[in-house]
């Protein structure tokens, strides 16, 4: 129970950060992705700021016991495969079209429009489509 309460407040802070940062403004996101137009570099500081906090906590805590639940992992994944590159490319195309990634999509439901709600519904459907594909077939197709 304490773990779930902690997760709730982490989600709340995460949403507040997304809202303050401008990640919930698709025009800003597309401006950041527009390297060959009038590039808006400012959203670089969202990822930069987040990593600056996360990285030292990871290195201080990895392999140790978390406060409320189990142990942290001891290492990060190093492996790469075709699935990573194909999936990230497909995600990037959708992100570039709508200017919305999964976190901001959920947060935008706090002040929804038909278009953003449809985007989120389709995003969840896309996850289920991936889930429904036979694992073996994906493995065969992507090496």
């Amino acid at each position: 129970m304490r773990k779930n309460i902690a997760a709730f407040f982490c989600g709340l802070l995460f949403a507040a950060g997304l809202g303050v940062s401008g990640m919930t403004l698709p025009t800003r996101v597309v401006g950041f992705l527009d390297f060959f137009g009038g590039w808006d570099y400012s959203l670089m500081f969202v990822m930069g700021g987040a990593i600056a906090v996360y990285l030292p906590v990871w290195y201080a805590m990895k392999c140790r016991k978390s406060v409320l639940a189990g142990n942290l992992p001891c290492s990060a994944r190093k492996d790469t495969d075709a699935r990573l590159f194909i999936g990230a490319s497909i995600f990037g195309i959708g992100w570039g079209l709508a200017g919305i990634c999964p976190g901001p999509g959920i947060v935008l439901l706090g002040r929804p429009s038909v278009e953003t709600a449809a985007f989120v519904a389709a995003m969840l459907a896309g996850m289920l489509v991936h889930r429904a594909l036979p694992r073996k077939q994906i493995a065969a197709a992507t090496g």
Partner: peptide, 27 residues
């Protein structure tokens, strides 16, 4: 800071959502 207006028409937003959902899970 919470945009209501979408960048693209509804059908394209649905396509984009499908791509984001599928791509993030595959990747």
């Amino acid at each position: 800071n919470l945009a209501r207006e979408a960048l693209r028409p509804l059908p394209m937003m649905i396509v984009a959502g499908l791509l984001v959902g599928f791509g993030t899970r595959l990747g």
